[in-house]
Amino acid sequence: MEHDARTIRGDVTLVMVLVENDAERERGVRVTNLLDGAVWPPRTNGVPEEGWSETGYEGVLAPGERRGIGYATPAPPDSNPVRVEPIERRSAPEGTDPVRDLPDPRPPRDALRADVPAAVTAWLDDVERRGGQTDRERAALERAARLREDS
């Protein structure tokens, strides 16, 4: 199992891993986070994507398949962020997954009072100062102004 792992640091650390199954058969892979912080996996509707756990990722790669795997963590970056190891291939879970396969009952984010992040406000201020906005930029400015009035 070949792999390459990198980290970049913004407000949080983003870990990017590329794994490649160089064998001619399906193989399972486990990617374990080695950084000193929680794994924040990719999510859909607030639910972690299939294969993610608190320690990292597990999945099955087809022969020759390359797969990009990424997650965020509050831990500082390091040159060796993950351990990648082949594992016994496990068959996919059968039947309905009650959380992943059923609709999300939680109220939509738009139903909550929105807080505009500081970085977005700064960008909007820039756009306003610059003048000559595009239609989309004008729409974003109007929406932000409404949000400010509401909160």
Partner: peptide
Amino acid sequence: SLAGARACDLGRIE
């Protein structure tokens, strides 16, 4: 609260 409902991780229910 709606915010509280929104912040729930349904994967923790079980």
